[in-house]
Design a protein around this nucleic acid. Structure first.
Lengths: 226, 226
DNA sequence: TGGTCAATCGCATGATGATGTGGTTTTTAC
DNA sequence: GTAAAAACCACATCATCATGCGATTGACCA
């Protein structure tokens, strides 16, 4: 380990400062972020790049603690850039900056491995706190984004988490149905007659209020009955 | 409507203050929250209840702007309480307070309809901001919780997001299949012959490498092709 | 100890699905 | 401007599904 014992009699503010690397194709925004970060002693902007063409090299050269990444960039866009970062660096915090908070954007960024998501219009107020937050293991998000992320969590058993009163065996059958098994295969798998399979599945349909295997599968997955 | 026009010459700070209702069975915590909130002019603690037995009545009596809800309470627990609130009030912000940040707790609370999730050990620092945040449409979460919520978002198409080269029309058909439509219904819906439906679906199966509707539906949902 | 229910099985029938072969028309792309 | 791809349709055949009506067994409960 690369442990260093700090001398308690001397303060090393620059050692503790969060080393930040910024990507944004908008020059005006790069400037404003630069002055914003300069206002904070515990933040240190290493560089502000207009694009992510040399992403891998940049990371090696600057070795940042945090990356601020614009989503809409020419060439390699922000989402793709995060994906690239995640291929080599599992833990480097990446905060996305964007003007849009539509579901598609957010979802893609999160799935790519972004650690936070800040709207540019709130950047000046939120960025310093967001950087500190993400450094300590958090996931800073502009309020509206956080709301949308919550809505992405599979609703599932939210309200009437009745499992539709499926019996253990019926749940088992449904599971196989979801896995794409035919009646014949289910019967073979469970060592029961195909007529028994029919019987079970009819009862499942009744309880689920559906009339076909596709409906049952769809419902089972969406409501997480399986 | 119960509108009142405020006199512009007089300031009414109490009118703007966030009206807060707190539920927690721990008396010490109720006290500390009381003094914490008292320190902020824009926050107003209406009442601190030890349990949620009279939840519905409490809401009518106090008509709060925000509810702070402990998760671990005897009788009606916090998650159940949120669910009850959501049955009558879709939009009332509810911030969960808890000592645990395990996935199960978070997931249940979010699914029940909680708007935020703050760990008690950070409450003194985070609660005032969280209340303001949630009032303006946000979803305040302690950093570690936010991280976990992100992980709950179905990863899905992250990696090899091949959409299996489905054409636009084929995706449309698949969507209907997922919704439980029969061939006949799909044909009617899209104004095409049932033979065309067959033709399309056969091609979909080929591209998805499946041989039945249930398999196709299952794959479509799990891989988020739809 | 009689009633309810889950699980099992059988049979029958009409509807729907899966697959193949072959064709026309329209769009898209180079 | 032509080749490829996508969208459309038809017919045929066998497999599978959806549904209904029974019926038997064992477990559990009041």
């Amino acid at each position: 380990m690369n442990q260093q014992l700090p001398n308690p009699l001397i303060s090393y503010p620059e050692i503790m400062a969060a080393r930040i690397l910024l990507y944004d194709d908008n020059e005006a925004l790069r400037w404003s972020m630069e002055s914003l970060i300069a206002d904070h002693e515990d933040l240190d902007l290493l560089a502000a790049m207009p694009d992510a063409q040399n992403l891998a090299a940049d990371l090696l050269v600057f070795n940042p603690d945090v990356v601020l990444m614009d989503i809409d960039m020419p060439g390699i866009n922000g989402v793709e850039a995060v994906r690239l970062i995640r291929q080599t660096n599992e833990n480097l915090p990446v905060i996305m900056l964007t003007v849009f908070d539509d579901n598609e954007n957010i979802f893609n960024a999160i799935c790519a491995g972004a650690s936070g998501y800040i709207l540019k219009r709130y950047a000046s107020e939120e960025i310093p706190a967001a950087i500190r937050n993400v450094m300590s293991g958090g996931a800073p998000m502009t309020g509206s984004v956080a709301r949308k992320v919550l809505q992405m969590v599979p609703v599932a058993k939210s309200e009437e988490q009745e499992n539709y009163n499926l019996s253990k065996r019926e749940t088992e059958l449904l599971q196989l149905l979801v896995n794409g098994f035919s009646y014949k295969m289910i019967g073979f798998e469970l060592n029961i007659s195909i007529d028994t399979v029919r019987s079970h599945i009819k009862k499942i349909y009744d309880k689920l209020h559906v009339h076909s295997a596709t409906e049952a599968v769809s419902l089972a997955i969406k409501k997480r009955i399986i």
